[in-house]
């Protein structure tokens, strides 16, 4: 293999070009454009936006219309500040519940007989292959006031009044946990499955009870999986739009929904872009952490 940071030969460059150019044009460039348009003048109802620079005035430098006004407005508007904090808290709580449900499942699969692990894991991933939208929709029928859960509980005589779950934060937690659970379990399983069972046997020989062995051996060793799973769930959950819209009802104020409303209803693209930049700002740290973690988990390839 080529040594060090050597330049690639032309054949390899040809292989690299298509994916690199595509990702630069349709992934990196879009972010630069969003950042630029977030500085454009906000105008309700007149998409796309006022150009950032005006070349018609003559002179060497164009007249600039760029400003941070959109961001100032976001921070002054309680609605957006509230959406921001609410999104982070909903994503945080859902991620925590996901970890609490996903960890025992991942551990149970990792401790199962090797031949059964594949099918068990497959059962976790299978729902992910069916339509996300339809699975969220199924929960609407279950959680409604006159839905399946309430009629079941009332039929059993456990409650008199229907529990109001749909159109509350609880319904959003359920929706996010349900949709993202496989993403939590997969990285957890990957680290748990790699653990040497001899470690636990050693702990048992030294007199540790199973719980103690779990807390001082299994749990700390699975930390990379916990961090990866947490980030993989948390980051997209912050911007989640479909789940709050369908399960959280009109009262749920979250960033993803606010962004869509500003974009589609008010047709104010610069403010929508500013919201996207603000959302990204909250995610830069988790994204960077995830990127570092992924690179540390792939040492076998780096040396290739």
């Amino acid at each position: 293999m080529t040594a060090g940071r050597a330049k690639l030969d032309w054949g390899r460059r040809a292989v690299l070009t298509l994916p690199f150019v595509w990702l630069l044009a349709f992934f990196l460039l879009p972010f630069i454009i969003v950042a630029a348009i977030s500085l454009a003048e906000s105008r309700v109802g007149i998409p796309p936006y006022v150009p950032l620079f005006d070349w018609t005035q003559g002179g060497v430098w164009p007249a600039s219309h760029a400003s941070l006004d959109n961001f100032v407005q976001l921070f002054q508007d309680d609605l957006y500040v509230d959406a921001y904090l609410h999104s982070l808290s909903v994503a945080g709580i859902s991620t925590a519940i996901c970890l609490l449900i996903g960890y025992p499942m991942a551990l149970a699969i990792a401790r199962a007989a090797p031949a059964r692990r594949g099918p068990l894991l497959m059962l976790v991933v299978l729902p992910f292959w069916t339509s996300f939208l339809i699975r969220v929709y199924a929960w609407m029928g279950i959680l409604k006031d006159e839905g399946l859960l309430n009629s079941l509980l009332q039929g059993l005589g456990l409650i008199d009044q229907p529990l109001v779950i749909l159109n509350t934060d609880l319904a959003i937690y359920i929706g996010i946990v349900y949709s993202y659970l496989p993403f939590m379990i997969l990285p957890l399983y990957a680290t748990l499955e790699r653990q040497d069972p001899a470690l636990l046997e050693a702990a048992a020989d030294l007199g540790a009870r199973p719980w103690r062995a779990f807390l001082s051996v299994t749990l700390p060793l699975s930390l990379p999986g916990i961090v990866a799973g947490t980030l993989v769930v948390f980051i997209p959950a912050v911007g989640e739009y479909v789940i709050p819209d369908l399960l959280g009802g009109s009262g749920s104020n979250m960033l993803g929904k606010a962004l869509w409303d500003v974009f589609a209803m008010s047709r104010d693209w610069p403010t929508a872009a500013a919201l996207a930049v603000a959302m990204l700002a909250a995610l830069v740290l988790p994204l960077g952490l995830l990127n570092r973690l992924q690179r540390r988990l792939e040492p076998a390839e780096e040396g290739a």
Partner: peptide, 11 residues
């Protein structure tokens, strides 16, 4: 992992 609203708007 990128939130879809960001990718959609950016594209």
């Amino acid at each position: 992992v990128m939130p879809e609203v960001i990718m959609g708007l950016a594209l």
